[in-house]
Every structure is written in structure tokens, then in C-alpha cells.
């Protein structure tokens, strides 16, 4: 089973890289999907550049939202920020009912077209899963462990850094992964507000009824999302010890 997964993973990666570097070699596969001699492979831009641009946007937004969300999560779980806790938990619940498209649409009038509204929408929407998981992670640290940490003479800062955050880390990373995957998807919609990315390919396909474009755009984004999620999960398993809390 694990070997099959590894093979699948490598195959997916090879497919993604191969397609991005030499898209034309896949042309025969997509040709049957086109009509009236339309190009089977997206020809209005470089697929590799688009994919990298989308990845950059997604990662930039994810880094920003991770920093802000984790910092906020820490803040409201400290005694000094405790008064903000009930509100912030409700906000997380409400925030999740906002569709990403709506966030994107509302960002446009604020900053205009291009990468910026996409970045803002991805940042704002990416905050939620990370913040929520940080909160859950920090609030579900076993009380006995926290009591022991204080009882042994850790300062509040030492306790946070060497006990609470490490214990919450698996959940926080899970939140970051989740927000990255959502962001890869949302970033494709960003192409409707002129952000650079693979969404451009899909939109071009929709506008010219070229199924080949839609399919390759969707395939590449999907592959990117899955590989990103899976890659981070693997990295996480390598870096973190298994922790069971009960």
C-alpha cells in the first residue's frame, strides 16, 4: 500500500512537471477535444509561467495568513486577550459562511484589478482555517500538561514555545494545508479579476468553448493542489513526532 502511494505520488509529480515544461508533447491527447482546428494546448501564454505565478500568489498569501492567524490565535488564548476569545470564535464561524468568490468580488473595488484583490481574498480566506485550528490546538492542550509546565517553573513564554505550540503544531499545520488547497482553487477564480494563473487557461477555454483548455487548466490546478497538500503532509510526518493526546 505505501509503495503504491509513493508511485502514484511520483507519477502525479512527473505528469505535472512534464506538462508544464513540454506542453506540446501532450497535444495529441487533447486534440480530439477541440473543434474546427482550435489549438489543443493553451497558446496565449506560457503554462509554466502561469503555474509559477499562481503558486507564488498562493504561497505569499498563505505565509501572510499563517503569520497573522497564528499570532491572533496565540493572542486570544493568553489571559490578556481572553476578552476577545468569544468574539473571535464566533467570527471564525461566521467567516466560514462567506464564499471565497464573494471575498474576491468585494476586494476588487478596494484595490482594483490584478494580483492584489486575489492576494487579499486569499489572505482573508486563508486566515480562517489556520486561526480556527490554532485556537483548537492551543485550547485543547491537556490541562495537566500545562499545569505541570507551570509547576516546574516555565515562564509563560517558555510554556508557550516549548509546550503549547509544539502540541498544537499538527493542528496548525493541518490548517495551513487546508487553507493552501482552498487557495489554489480560489486563485483560479482570481483570473476573472485578471490575476495571473492557470485560471486564465480555464477562462479562455470557457470563453472559446475549447474543452481542451478547460481540461488542462483544471487538471494542472487539481494536480498542484493535491501535490501541495500531500507534500506538506509528508513533510509534516517527517518533521514531527507522532503525538497522541488522550
Amino acid at each position: 500500500m505505501p509503495r503504491a502511494v509513493t508511485v502514484l505520488r511520483l507519477a502525479a509529480l512527473a505528469l505535472l512537471v512534464g506538462f508544464l515544461v513540454t506542453p506540446q508533447s501532450f497535444a495529441p491527447l487533447f486534440a480530439p477535444l477541440t473543434q474546427y482546428g482550435a489549438p489543443p494546448i493553451y497558446d496565449q501564454g506560457n503554462l509554466l509561467t502561469l503555474a509559477l505565478a499562481q503558486l507564488a500568489t498562493v504561497c505569499l498569501a498563505a505565509v501572510a495568513s499563517s503569520i497573522v492567524a497564528v499570532a491572533l490565535g496565540i493572542l486570544v488564548t493568553r489571559p490578556s486577550g481572553a476578552q476577545f476569545l468569544p468574539l473571535s470564535r464566533t467570527l471564525v464561524n461566521i467567516g466560514q459562511t462567506f464564499p471565497p468568490v464573494a471575498v474576491l468580488a468585494v476586494a476588487v473595488p478596494l484595490v482594483g484589478f490584478g494580483e492584489k484583490p486575489t492576494l487579499i481574498a486569499l489572505f482573508a480566506y486563508g486566515l480562517l482555517p489556520i486561526f480556527e485550528n490554532t485556537l483548537v490546538g492551543l485550547r485543547t492542550c491537556p490541562p495537566a500538561v500545562l499545569e505541570a509546565a507551570s509547576g516546574m517553573g516555565m515562564s509563560a513564554r517558555q510554556r508557550l514555545l516549548s509546550v503549547e505550540l509544539p502540541l498544537a503544531m499538527p493542528l496548525i499545520l493541518e490548517g495551513i494545508r487546508l487553507s493552501l488547497v482552498i487557495n489554489v482553487g480560489t486563485a483560479t477564480i482570481g483570473s476573472t479579476v485578471a490575476a495571473k494563473g492557470l485560471g486564465e487557461v480555464i477562462i479562455a477555454g470557457l470563453l472559446s468553448s475549447n474543452t481542451a483548455f478547460i481540461l488542462q487548466g483544471g487538471l494542472l490546478t487539481g494536480l498542484m493542489a493535491i501535490l501541495l497538500y500531500d507534500g506538506l503532509a509528508t513533510l509534516e510526518r517527517r518533521l514531527l513526532r507522532p503525538v497522541t493526546l488522550d
Binding site: 488547497v181 482553487g185 474543452t211 478547460i214 487548466g217 483544471g218 487538471l219 487539481g222
Partner: peptide
């Protein structure tokens, strides 16, 4: 789970082909 990771816009597009 894998289906969930496919961006909505892409899944919509991909389904257009077989349904068409």
C-alpha cells in the same frame, strides 16, 4: 477527499466535456 481538492471552476469545466 481528492475530489475536494479540485478547484470548483476546474471541476465545472471538466464536467462540461462528458456531459456535452
Amino acid at each position: 477527499n481528492v475530489i475536494q481538492t479540485i478547484p470548483a471552476i476546474a471541476l465545472f469545466g471538466i464536467l462540461m466535456a462528458p456531459l456535452g
